[in-house]
């Protein structure tokens, strides 16, 4: 399984959300890093090797799109999955144009997230 050794960075402004998704992904044999903001995510990426980023679109301060742009500038190969509410669907789609791998509507199903992460990891392997 490609996901066995996969390292995922979760970026969301909700600590409770980070904690529960991290727990569930870890149970599924993933190595999970968490970041509470775009700035924190960029700092984490500098120090830790990461296979994929799960990024919330709507965050106070540096929002998801801005974070995505910066990630893509610094790590063009990095696969990013956008997490978004219905209201920001257009934003998520514009994120795809900026190089995001895929997007997921909140509340997201964990299996779907796993599936997309595996997908992203496979793409990365091929690259």
């Amino acid at each position: 399984m490609t996901t066995d050794s996969m390292t995922v960075l979760l970026v969301d402004d909700e600590p409770d959300f980070l904690s529960v998704v991290a727990r569930r992904l870890e149970r599924r044999n993933m190595h999970v890093l968490s970041a509470g903001s775009g700035e924190e995510a960029l700092a984490t990426l500098e120090t830790h090797p990461v296979d994929a980023v799960v990024l919330d679109v709507k965050m106070p301060g540096m929002d998801g799109i801005e974070t995505l742009k910066r990630i893509k500038v610094a790590y063009p190969e990095m696969e990013v999955i956008m997490l978004t509410g219905h209201a920001d669907l257009e934003v998520a789609i514009s994120g795809m144009a900026l190089g995001a791998f895929d997007y997921l509507l909140k509340p997201a199903d964990i299996d779907e997230l796993m599936f997309k992460l595996r997908d992203a990891s496979r793409t990365r392997m091929r690259a």
């Binding site: 909700e14 959300f17 709507k58 209201a87 509340p107 964990i110």
Partner: peptide
């Protein structure tokens, strides 16, 4: 909607 969506995703998870 966003405000409600966040606790909702946490509860779902």
């Amino acid at each position: 909607a966003h405000e409600i969506n966040n606790p909702l995703s946490i509860m779902t998870q």
